[in-house]
Amino acid sequence: MQKVTLFPQSCKGMEDCGICAFVCPKSLFVASEEMNETGYLPPMPPDEEKCTACGNCMIYCPDFAIAVEGGAVDGREE
């Protein structure tokens, strides 16, 4: 099952934000080369193999651009 879902249209860009990359313990986020509707560069889908579904990217993304399923998303102290 797919763990991480991106909503690239909600993203405000890896250049000015990039919080997902900062908080991913597996460093799975790199910017895509495709702009979204508002001209921002969202991340590319992370490598599902390496993703532990820790939920960080979802919980820290300020723009509700990432959802994570199937892991210890809730209640985990960072």
């Binding site: 405000k12 300020p62 723009d63």
Partner: peptide, 13 residues
């Protein structure tokens, strides 16, 4: 559809 904040603004968190 979107928050009103600048990119990377912590208000979204």
């Amino acid at each position: 559809k979107k928050t009103t904040f600048c990119p990377g603004c912590g208000a979204g968190i």
